[in-house]
Every structure is written in structure tokens, then in C-alpha cells.
Computed example of a mutant assay.
Amino acid sequence: MGTVILVRHGRTTANTSGVLAGRTAGVRLDETGRRQASRTAERLAVVPLVAVVTSPLERCRQTTKFIVDAHADRPPTLVERGITECDYGEWQGRRLAELSKEKLWSVVQTQPSAAVFPGGESLAAMQARSVAAIRRHDAAFEAEFGPGVVWAAVSHGDIIKSILADALGMHLDLFQRISINPASVSIVRYGTDRPDVVATNTDSGDLSWLRAPAPEADAAVGGGAGPGMPAESGS
């Protein structure tokens, strides 16, 4: 089974100003976001990544550069439009405090599957194209490198939430129950029978266990012993 590490971009100037950036050009990481991206890059430096797939938006490209530059193998970067930010249409560039007064806001919160942004896309369409992109890349990497392949995808909060909801078998209407912080790491393994959600929204912790072979596809009854640690160097 292939393993994808889902990384949200670091904090941006739009995040701190309370503006829905969407696909607005020129939205960059702020100082905190750069520190967050650097910290995440350090966590991923020990992971044998075969590639980093990124949203085309600048904040994701910046985060990706931190990851690649910190990695001794400098894995190749692939740009994937399928995991770009949701097209929020007329909502893009507006303040969240203002948008929260719109009738659509409550739909987004309680029934996302019915939410269609004026002049933009629906959350259901967003989920469909992002999940399709992730599964397509995972299958291609596994076919090329084998079932133990590990790769990273750098994307956006709502995109990652929708991918995790699909992997968890959750209806899209429940995806607001998932939190994805800036520069957080979530991990999904796509097995033959079902996805295995290994971690969600982590911002610290050792990831060197991802160097060990992936476990069997069947779920361990009772929970199992957890991931095996890679052998010590020289042992």
C-alpha cells in the first residue's frame, strides 16, 4: 500500500487578517508560517519521500520548497491542480466575519454537501477532484516504486479535510468535525480493501517510523503493536 503524507501550507498573511484567500495570487507565508513550514520540513527530512505533489498556489509552493530543501534526497516536485484551493467564487477575498452573516455560511457549517459558492464550485466537486487526484498519484507511485512507497502532498485546509473524510468513510456533511492546522501533517495509507488513516493534524513528533515497511493490509484485531521502528544504523 502507498502512504501519502498530507501537509497543509504554513500560516499566511490572509489567515491572520481573517480574509478568505481562496485562489488569490500573491498570498504568501508570514513569519510564523515560514517557521511552521521549516519545522514540518525537519519532521519529514527522515522520511524516504519519492516525490512532493503540491497545489499550484504560492503558499503551498513555499511550504514545498522548505520540505524539499531540508531533504537529503531532494525529492522531485510535481504540481497538481486537482489539489488546489476550493474555488470560492464571489466569496474569495472577503472577510470571514462578513461571510459568517451570509445564509450560505450555515449551509457550509451544517450541510457542506449542499454548499455551492456563488460563481465558484461546490464543496462536493472540490472533494471529488481532490480525492481523485490523490488516489491517482498514489496508484502511480505504488506502480513505479512498490507498495511501501511514501510521498507527500502539500495542499489546503478544506482540501485535506475532504480527503480525510473520504478516507474515514465519513459523509461530506461531517467533514467540519475535522481540524487541519497550518503546516500540520496527516497520514493516509491506501490499501487494497480500504484506506487506513494513520494520523491527523499533527504538528510534532518523530516520523522516522515511516522508514519501516508498511504493515499488512488487514487491520490488527485488538489494535496491534503499532508501527515498527527502523533498525538502528550499524546494527
Rank of each mutant, 00 (worst) to 15 (best):
I134A: 05
E80M: 05
E90K: 10
V53N: 09
K101F: 04
P75E: 06
I180S: 12
A212V: 05
S55K: 01
A219S: 06
P215R: 14
V108S: 04
L99I: 12
S235L: 07
G33P: 09
P75S: 08
D158P: 07
A143S: 13
A167D: 03
G222S: 08
H156F: 03
G146K: 01
A125W: 00
N15D: 05
T110H: 11
T192A: 10
S179I: 11
S204R: 15
G223P: 14
A14E: 14
L164E: 07
A153M: 07
R43A: 10
C86F: 13
G10L: 02
L78K: 03
E42M: 14
F175C: 08
W91S: 11
L174P: 08
R177L: 11
V108A: 11
G18D: 15
A153C: 04
W151T: 01
D73C: 09
A220R: 15
H137I: 04
L49I: 08
T54D: 08
G228N: 13
A220V: 11
G22S: 03
D173E: 00
V47D: 02
A133E: 00
K65R: 14
Q176R: 13
G224Q: 08
L123C: 06
P118G: 15
G224E: 06
N15G: 14
T64K: 02
P213N: 09
V4A: 07
T32N: 06
Q109G: 13
G26T: 05
S38N: 08
A219Q: 15
V116G: 04
P195D: 01
T192W: 12
R28Y: 00
E232F: 10
W91G: 05
T12L: 04
R135D: 00
D173L: 03
P76Y: 00
Q127L: 01
W209L: 15
R35S: 11
H171I: 06
A115T: 02
A152H: 09
G169I: 02
I67C: 10
D203E: 15
V150C: 03
A143M: 09
A139Q: 08
G119F: 08
L57Q: 03
H137D: 07
C86Q: 11
A97H: 05
W91H: 01
T202Y: 07
D138G: 12
R34Q: 13
P118A: 04
V185L: 08
A132C: 13
A124R: 04
S208D: 10
V185T: 04
M229C: 04
R136K: 09
R23N: 11
S38F: 12
A231T: 14
G33L: 05
F175H: 13
A45I: 05
E90P: 12
C60L: 02
R129F: 00
P75R: 02
T12G: 11
P230F: 09
R59P: 08
D73K: 06
F175E: 05
Q36I: 06
V149E: 04
S17F: 08
R211M: 11
S184Q: 02
E216P: 15
H9P: 06
Y88V: 07
V198Q: 09
V221A: 11
S235G: 12
T32H: 11
E216W: 13
